[in-house]
Design a protein around this nucleic acid. Structure first.
Lengths: 212, 212
DNA sequence: AATTCCAGAGAACAGTTGTTAACTGCATGG
DNA sequence: CCATGCAGTTAACAACTGTTCTCTGGAATT
């Protein structure tokens, strides 16, 4: 289906990606609303004006970063939530997945946590939309579960949002665990895993007794 | 105990407060890391250099804002969590308190939500410390409850953190409900109240069955 | 082979930024 | 009452910002 890109288009996408990567790097130590267009182009090694060939503004670039950070995560979410096994096992798997993702893409996770309530409206909205999609998908998977028998739609979505928030909160904690002295890093990571596991377990308990 | 301030000190504190207020206003549409010192002084109507008489940098000002936003909240938290009545009543009261606080100090709440994961390290740390104090206090109050019989310290703190996160998440939702057309505002607020109530109820259920 | 297209370069713009130094005037303490 | 302290002013600095216009070289189209 997808036509092979010409030399031209390929080169364009390459610089575009370079801009995105450079921006993500710069955003580790500042917020999007303070990210300058020249700063980004300087990091890539292109002229400032080249920026406009790809993005209208840094806000526009931010929206693209949201897509890059969360867009490809949907299938992963679906399969993780829907996997079989007892509750305790599923919790452990989900948390392990989060830990691996944070470890593999720390800058993406930091960006989302930072800009979710950040100073750039279009980016906030893009993140909100993506998280709402996650919640919908989690809801759909939860609905298939036997435990959800007799639940109404509102309550399922309520629980899904709780899970999504909890996942994000956990991801943010794993991120913090990556900072600081490397020696105690495994220790901090283990502590976060333990905390998150118990919190998920408690929410799961609430879920089981919801219809009492 | 507190000596009455001279004309001089009083005037100083007045401009200091003016700087804080102006900054808080400007921060509704941007992040701290993009807040310029000149921007703030211009809004107040003083010379840029006057800024240095009060703060070393905008990051320093940010830390002061954290204290202003969260410092006075501790007694409120304690009394709210510890009030008597059945669980459902207490949940309703807590959420009502959050709603009122967001309504009364929206800029403070926005600032905390924004800078909790923002681009300025000292500010992040200041917020983290304050939230850790909240969690400790919530834990202390939870411990007094009869339901907490047999709980160990770690689990109590784990639950306290869950409550604190949930409160912040709810506050952020109330904040979003304030935006947009004024007509549907009560409707959006009601929806948030309902969602938060059910989530708190579910967590409460998990709490009751923790020791099963 | 000739023409069009367009990603990126280059230069220039007016406006902004943080920080410095030396100052002024008034409240304060001796 | 006089000398000191210090909040806030003024002026100037080099460096930086986003945006515009013009230009260029090579890929794409005809």
């Amino acid at each position: 289906m997808s036509h092979t890109l010409g030399i031209r288009q390929a080169q364009k996408q390459k610089t575009r990606q370079a801009l995105l990567d450079a921006a993500l790097g710069l955003l580790e130590e500042q917020s999007l609303s303070s990210l300058g267009l020249r700063e980004v182009t300087r990091a890539v090694g292109v002229a400032p004006t080249a920026f406009y060939r790809h993005f209208r503004s840094t806000a526009d670039l931010g929206v693209a970063l949201v897509e890059e950070a969360l867009g490809s995560l949907h299938p992963m979410i679906r399969t993780t939530v829907s996997t079989t096994g007892d509750h305790e096992e599923r919790v452990a798997r989900a948390i392990d997945l989060i830990a691996r993702h944070v470890d593999g893409y720390p800058a993406h996770v930091r960006f989302i946590a930072r800009e979710r309530h950040g100073g750039v409206q279009p980016v906030r909205e893009a993140i909100r939309d993506q998280l709402a999609r996650f919640a919908q998908e989690v809801k759909d998977e939860l609905a298939k579960d036997a435990v959800s028998e007799g639940w109404n739609e509102d309550d399922l979505l309520m629980l899904a949002h709780l899970y999504v928030d909890q996942m994000l909160s956990t991801a943010s904690l794993f991120l913090e665990a990556l900072e600081g002295p490397e020696e105690e890093r495994p220790d901090r990571t283990r502590r976060v895993t333990q905390l998150a596991t118990r919190q998920m377990r408690l929410i799961g308990l609430g879920r089981h007794h919801w219809l009492d």
